[in-house]
Amino acid sequence: MTFKYNNVYINETGTVTGPYEASGPLSKYFDKGYKDFYFGLPTWEQAESKSIEDAVDIVLNKTNRTKFDIDLFISGDLLNQTAASNIAASSLGVPYFGVYNACATSVEGLILASNMIEAKQIKNCITCASAHNNASEKQFRYPVEYGGPKPKTTTFTTTGAAAAFLSYNKKGIRIESATVGSVVDSGVKDAFHMGAVMAPAAAQTIYRHLLETKREADYYDLILTGDLGRYGKNILRECINTEYGITLKNYDDTACMIFDLDNQPVYAGASGPACAPLVTYGYIFSLMKKKELKRVLLVATGALHSQSTVNQKLSIPSIAHAISLEVIE
């Protein structure tokens, strides 16, 4: 399912990060970075909510708007019942959709907002995706202070929130089209190997997007997946080549960009709903504004597992949504 948009633009973005991202290679592209995991609050869950509120505030300031000017707020995160987004939405007090597609949440939000703006149902929308390393470790894995050994394929959840202000005003970055992915069962059951879980979903969505838009892979200056990690990246390259005959040349993965993989303790790279939008809104948009990149296909990938289904030895379903971003000519 691919949608074409004529009049949808990401006017402004707001990016807030935690300590590891703020000391990573892309730190200068983010609006705000915290030095610890609590952000001055008692719990990690509250800290995650605060990162969403901060990102939204930054967007409102950049666009000279107040919350009363916002038609719709779409947000999602990794916590049970998308708790961080719900709390942030309650303090914002505008019409709200809570969404969940794990690490594909950001693009899911962008697609929903774009469709409503294109259909003129709303004038504008703020979409947001967030994650918190410690809060999600607590929920999905072991206690943070436990620190047990993990395999090399483990990914490290990004801390932070990334918000985007979308409207039909021609400013910023254009959203040209989007492809909604379907859920893929790759047969992988290992929750410590997310790259392997999500690579088939990414391959399928990229293939469908190119097929339905009648494009070749090199139409895009960059195809960016978020977030397969350093091993998942190679799996995708091989998988998409053997299965669909597509060779990825201008390709990268956000998991390998936000951290310094060799010098930060992040195993196979970053993960979490905030990773792809943080890299895209911060670093990629700055390259697009300088016209170094003109067309970018962002493919956000999500592993849709719960701890219970993993313990029940069920294979992990995964999804990928693609969105085509263009420089305004």
Binding site: K152, S186, H193, Y231, N234, I235, E238, C239, T242
Partner: peptide
């Protein structure tokens, strides 16, 4: 892609843990 075939691709790109060193 068939699940068995995909498993082979995954195994090819998955780094081996250094079991002897860890032990």
């Amino acid at each position: 892609m068939e699940k068995n075939k995909y498993k082979e691709v995954v195994n090819r790109h998955t780094p081996k843990e250094n079991v002897l060193y860890n032990t």
